[in-house]
């Protein structure tokens, strides 16, 4: 049995709480309006479009599950899903390890800390147009830096972004370079670890490894978790690198999910099918995030747990 009061929670509150709730909604109203205008409406429209055949310049025609059937038979869809998964598997763990490593180094008491931090942050701020030209030369089989260095020690380097088998690993390597934002977040996490914990380990005679293993890592696990989720989301949507550097090639070896989606929308002008792809990706990301959230209980250490 429920009456109208219990079904509409806000009416169920005492006046003070009701006022607080009103202030809450008033204060988040800019975000709520933005949400409806720039996210909910576009999402709803694209959800509708995902059930239509919608070519640019024409009216959408509802085709029911037609797009989803097409998706199952679409070689490029499966290919791009595979490429993206491989990319995620390669880039996210690497990025995490490198970012933690750099953050640990930068958290030390070092001279000229501003200088060092700025240098490590640099690769993340160079604009995409310039970065594309840069990597062209780093990975150029003939003139490139990597192969020149390899040749100096007598190894014939591969074709990197121009070789079907090496293009994706090249993109993964690239992603390891631009970890500036993650480093900053880890650094903040490390700085927030109470010094007493380290002192405790030191009193017990623990060395630097013990400090890392038994204090830094557990205390950092919520930050790792946070970065992991953001990293997963970003890696699943990887677009800039394959777009400006390889355009999906050679032979579709770097055709990532987003690139495939983008091509469907803006090369073929097939907005209906692109919307379907987008929604499928959204569901995949949501599902994976949920999985990671579930697993977090096993390895993420929360301060509040000890209370």
């Amino acid at each position: 049995m429920s009456n109208i009061r219990t079904r509409i929670p806000i009416l169920n509150l005492n006046p003070r709480a009701r006022r607080e709730a009103l202030v809450f909604y008033l204060m988040i109203s800019p975000w709520l309006i933005g949400l409806v205008l720039f996210i909910v409406y576009p999402m709803a429209r694209s959800l509708y479009l995902s059930f239509t055949r919608y070519q640019i310049g024409h009216e959408p025609i509802v085709t029911g599950l037609g797009n989803f059937n097409r998706l199952l038979e679409d070689g490029d869809f499966w290919r791009s899903l595979r490429v993206t998964l491989l990319y995620v598997l390669g880039s996210v763990p690497g990025q995490t390890a490198i970012a933690i490593g750099i953050a640990l180094l930068l958290a030390q008491k070092i001279r000229g800390v501003n200088f060092w931090r700025t240098i490590y942050f640099l690769p993340s701020v160079v604009s995409a147009v310039a970065i594309a030209v840069l990597w062209f030369y780093v990975f150029n089989p003939q003139y490139g830096l990597v192969n020149t260095l390899l040749a100096a020690i007598g190894i014939k380097g591969p074709g990197w972004v121009f070789d079907e088998n090496w293009a994706l690993p090249s993109l993964i390597l690239m992603s390891w370079w631009t970890v500036g934002a993650q480093v900053v977040i880890y650094l903040a996490g490390i700085k927030a670890i109470p010094q007493v914990l380290y002192e405790a380990v030191e009193i017990d005679g623990g060395g630097s490894w013990a400090r890392f293993r038994h204090v830094t890592l557990p205390m950092l696990s919520p930050v790792i978790f946070f970065n992991l989720i953001l990293g997963l989301i970003n890696a699943f949507q990887v677009f800039d690198g394959p777009m400006v550097l390889t355009n999906g090639g050679p032979n579709k070896a770097t055709l990532t999910y987003m690139l495939n989606l983008y091509k469907q929308a803006f090369d073929f002008g097939n907005l209906g099918y692109a919307s379907t792809l987008a929604w499928v990706l959204f569901l995949i990301i949501m599902g994976l995030t949920a999985l990671v959230l579930r697993s977090s209980a096993l390895w993420v250490y929360y301060e509040s747990e000890q209370r």
């Binding site: 409406y41 999402m43 919307s275 987008a278």
Partner: peptide, 21 residues
């Protein structure tokens, strides 16, 4: 939770409707 989940939206989905707006 809605706020957090908006961080994982694929942007091309919203591009065309936003452009229309």
């Amino acid at each position: 939770i809605i706020l957090l989940s908006t961080m994982m939206l694929p942007w091309p989905v919203m591009l065309i409707p936003q452009y229309e707006i």
